[in-house]
Amino acid sequence: MDALFYLFAALTLLCGILVIANPFSNNPVTSAMFLVLTIVSMAGLFVLLHAFFLAAVQVLVYAGAVMVLFLFVIMLLDLKEEQRRSIPLFSAGLGLIAVVAIASVIIGRLWKGPFVNSVDQPTMEGATTVLGTKLFSDYVLPFEIVSLVLLVAMIGAILLSKKELK
């Protein structure tokens, strides 16, 4: 199990890096495809955490729908010219320094944190039935609100993509 964790974690991080800075291509399609790989390997991590339902939803919603939408848009906007622009090195260097600082603060805090090894033997299972019961009892209100958010997003997307707004 540990080996699997390291495998999926390494895959997630490697593909994550290739999303933002790929030495071979500036093509947004490549970035999007590596994000798909990141998401799929993250679903692997979810499985290792026994969150089977979420792993399936992660692949189904993120990789299957959201990323296809991304690809769709990237391909529709013909971005040939965009690809030729390179990343400005000076500001990228500054950004890198800032982010490394932030990351080291977070990770340093994590290492000393109170929750490290807080539970010896995790037993929780992300079974579909349990999740569903909880979703429709304790979380009914957020569930309804989220469905409204979806509706609003749908109407918004349709309105925004109309050619002429009246």
Binding site: T12, G16, I17, I20, G95, V99, I102, A103
Partner: peptide
């Protein structure tokens, strides 16, 4: 945390 930093970067 690392993934978050990559995204931020």
């Amino acid at each position: 945390a690392l993934l978050f930093s990559i995204g931020l970067l």
